[in-house]
């Protein structure tokens, strides 16, 4: 609660400061809080608060996407007409590791009633499909990409969240919007992108983009550094501590046994 109040205060200040620059129709301004995420020992996902203002006629889309990388997959198929197995290897090139799209209620109805118009805007999974490449080329890329999206959805890493961008009365002629991005606990450190889009008459009128840095700090950062920079030492330490723990518990239990 306190965090939100503080956020609001910061936002209001930003808003006031940026007021003189308010400009042409359809322009969008947005602000992130926080601008970076630290993954510490007790990290269990977090929230990023996005807010800003836009011209009253526009609809807002907020998109959080992760680094692009190649993903190696196995396609499941039947062997001997009976047994399901992981069969052919397939690679999907340049897919984001995280893809969360937050949209307003009005856009949700567009998505429902006019799916083609929604896909033309370029935020849905069909639009994402156009940006990636599936190899080998002879693979049924449409079906595979669809299954891949299902896999990501089941991990909470891909989602379209309708009705999660809400509006309120803004200063002067603008309307304000806000969205709370739910950052999943399964988060890989790196550079993420938060984009906001003003959509009007079936096309994107203007946009903003901001980087969201995610990094490990404290104990997790220490462990990761040790594991990747000094692998052998790390493995040795891990086994020694495991043996010590086993012996310690053994000794404690011997003491207990002696008692009866």
């Amino acid at each position: 609660m306190l965090k939100k109040a503080a956020t609001f205060l910061v936002l209001s200040c930003c808003f006031l400061l940026s007021q003189p620059f308010s400009s042409a129709k359809g322009d969008i301004r947005a602000h992130l809080t926080p601008e970076a995420i630290d993954i510490g020992t007790f990290f269990n996902g977090t929230e990023v608060y996005v807010s800003g203002d836009v011209s009253p006629e526009a609809e807002v889309v907020v998109r959080l996407s992760g680094m692009r990388h190649d993903v190696a997959l196995k396609k499941k198929g039947k062997v001997l007409g009976l047994l399901w197995m992981n069969l052919d290897s397939i690679t999907i090139h340049r897919v984001p590791n995280l893809y969360l799209v937050y949209i307003s209620k009005n856009l949700e109805s567009t998505m429902r009633t006019e799916p083609s118009k929604w896909e033309e805007l370029g935020f849905g999974f069909a639009a994402l499909k156009k940006e990636v490449k599936v190899s080998p080329a002879e693979a049924d890329s449409e079906a595979i990409f669809k299954e891949f999206v299902e896999l990501k959805k089941s991990e909470g890493l891909y989602a379209i969240e309708p009705g999660k961008v809400v509006y309120s009365e803004g200063e002067s002629s603008q309307k304000s919007f806000e969205a709370i991005l739910q950052i999943p606990p399964r988060l890989v450190p790196g550079k993420y992108l938060v984009e906001t889009f003003a959509v009007k008459d079936g096309s994107v009128e203007s946009r903003t983009r901001a980087e969201l840095q995610v990094k490990q700090v404290g104990f997790p950062a220490f462990i990761t550094r040790l594991a990747f920079k000094h692998g052998a030492l790390y493995g040795l330490l891990a086994t020694i501590i495991a043996i010590a723990a086993g012996l310690l518990i053994g000794v404690i239990f011997k003491g207990e046994k002696g008692a009866h």
């Binding site: 104990f219 997790p220 462990i223 594991a227 990747f228 692998g231 052998a232 790390y234 493995g235 040795l236 330490l237 891990a238 086994t239 501590i241 495991a242 723990a245 086993g246």
Partner: peptide, 21 residues
């Protein structure tokens, strides 16, 4: 454990320690 830690960096010590306890 040592081989995996050295060549694949796949040993999560925090996870192992919790399981260990």
């Amino acid at each position: 454990t040592i081989m995996q830690a050295y060549s694949n960096h796949t040993v999560d010590f925090v996870l192992a320690l919790l399981l260990l306890l």
